[in-house]
Design a protein around this nucleic acid. Structure first.
Lengths: 78, 78
DNA sequence: ATCATAAGTGTCATATATGACAGCATGTGA
DNA sequence: TCACATGCTGTCATATATGACACTTATGAT
């Protein structure tokens, strides 16, 4: 059982990995990115680790600072 | 003033329009889509009208039922 | 091995997305 | 006009994303 929940968790983990990868490609540290978007760094970590389910606007503000489109965070998912 | 907030609202409205358009392209009614994803129809309406800030998993389950990738909801935004 | 820096964890408070449900508005075809 | 279908709004309760902050663990350089 727990099939749907596991599936969702995999999705969130994949999303987090994309964010983490794109952040590193820009050479940005978690503390830097989080402070630039006025987000608590603990929250960014939770998102990158796939432990939380970020909202559209949260992803958008991260994308904006990284200079990419929100869409890119979903690359290769689903 | 209120620049960032307005900007976010425009983003959410655009996101909602994408969802609404893709739903209609599939010939699906709000009541049908919302019941298929086990979502309250009032919530789907709020999302399509851009009055709320949907989470990643909410978008994902809508995309799944519509047979598209979550990514597509963000087409043309940012 | 030590030290510094980056990443990660635990916990609580607050804001808000969503569920649930009742009712309203608008259009559209008979 | 009328009835019905579809879309939409208002309100409350609950679940959870996020902010805040203290603390811990990993990593890397010297």
């Amino acid at each position: 059982m727990r099939k749907a929940k596991d599936d969702n968790n995999q999705f969130l983990i994949g999303l987090g990995k994309n964010i983490s990868r794109l952040r590193k490609e820009k050479g940005v540290k978690q503390i830097e990115l989080s402070s630039e978007v006025d987000m608590d760094k603990a929250n960014l970590i939770r998102i990158e680790k796939g432990r939380t389910n970020p909202t559209s606007l949260t992803l958008r503000k991260l994308a904006k600072v990284l200079g990419i489109k929100t869409q890119e965070f979903f690359e290769g998912l689903d």
